[in-house]
Write a protein that binds this DNA or RNA. Structure first.
Lengths: 194, 194
DNA sequence: GCGAACTTTGAGCGAACGCTCCAAGTTGTG
DNA sequence: CACAACTTGGAGCGTTCGCTCAAAGTTCGC
């Protein structure tokens, strides 16, 4: 839709504004006026460059889904620590705004099937990646408990990220360092107190 | 605002409708029309019983925040297993709709300070409860690692609950049974790979 | 069973929403 | 440098939003 240089630049400014509004004020506050005011652009310019408001929002949401998993076609050599460090960087680094949006997405997915599908795919991919790294670290771990512990680790990381974003002085890196890396550390799955 | 019996009943129907709409369609779709249509009530009746749309929504959100912690002034005798079982019941039992709303709340809290405050308070209370139960189960556990592991456990439970709500065939009880109950099971907090 | 208190409905208000349209200006190509 | 292609802003469209209000009906203590 944009062919000239100025158009491309305006498009980028609009996406940046959309990102900021979504991150700071949430999906409900991401009105056309909020976005175009922030981008310093008229409604006409917006619709010259995007099909609809939804299209711009969706482009940013997709970015927030993707960005949590850097190097998605990695060489299969990362350790669990690497993956955790990458997540910590995603939440605390330059992508912090995208991380804020990412953390809103799970809640949104509960009531928006169109968001739920890619979120589910992304989650499955991350579980696979964590489980594979776990088995690389410790070849004795079987598939099922690796996947199960990956689920636990991801859940815990998300919970801690939430705290980080809401209380800026929370030290995510330190908290993440204390997470159990191996399923062997888990309590026995059977025979525990009824 | 309601003094007669019929008024009280209508009020309850409206709250039920609000709960259903929030659980099934989310905050953004919880318009006055959606709520009053579902409750089988005119707009005038709604405003005879509630200060504003926000007031009704907020009443349900507060309920969803509170309901995750049953018996909040408990006698301090529950085990970690009890607390986990209570959470599983919250998500899979009769309160499933409230649980769906509860899981949306964290994302909402990121951009709505009014929601963030009670959520943070509720979370702190739950961490305390889990940590206390942990120390009751194993008196050797110190305060810091109990609190830290409570955080991990709650994060993991929330993550698993999310999966349960999105994929109805997911067995939350079984997954929760595999969670590490004790901080002792965690990886060493210091000295791990740089 | 009277009457004050309460409940109910739905048309309609002003504001805000997403979006369209077009006249004027800018960009880039041959 | 001419001209088509693209970009721009903003007035204004139709719709939906939360909410009000007056008139008619219902409830319930006395």
């Amino acid at each position: 839709m944009a062919r000239y240089r100025v158009g491309m630049e305006t498009r980028a400014r609009i996406l940046e504004a959309t990102r900021d509004v979504l991150g700071e004020q949430g999906l409900e506050s991401a009105t056309l006026k909020a976005i175009t005011d922030r981008a310093g652009v008229g409604a006409g310019s917006f619709y010259n460059l995007f099909e609809s408001k939804e299209a711009a929002v969706w482009e940013v949401l997709a970015e927030a889904i993707t960005a949590v998993d850097p190097d998605p076609d990695g060489h299969g050599t990362e350790t669990v620590d690497d993956l955790i460090a990458a997540f910590v960087a995603f939440v605390t680094g330059e992508t912090a705004t995208l991380a804020r949006i990412h953390l809103q997405l799970a809640g949104i997915a509960l009531t928006e099937p169109e968001v739920a599908a890619p979120i589910a795919r992304s989650h499955a991919r991350r579980v696979e990646r964590f489980a594979a790294a776990m088995q690389r670290d410790d070849p004795d771990v079987d598939d099922a408990s690796a996947a199960g512990h990956a689920e636990v680790l991801l859940g815990a990381l998300t919970g801690l990220a939430m705290r980080t974003v809401m209380a800026r002085d929370f030290d995510l890196a330190a908290a993440a360092a204390g997470l159990p890396r191996h399923p062997s550390a888990a309590a026995p799955a059977v025979g525990h107190r009824s």
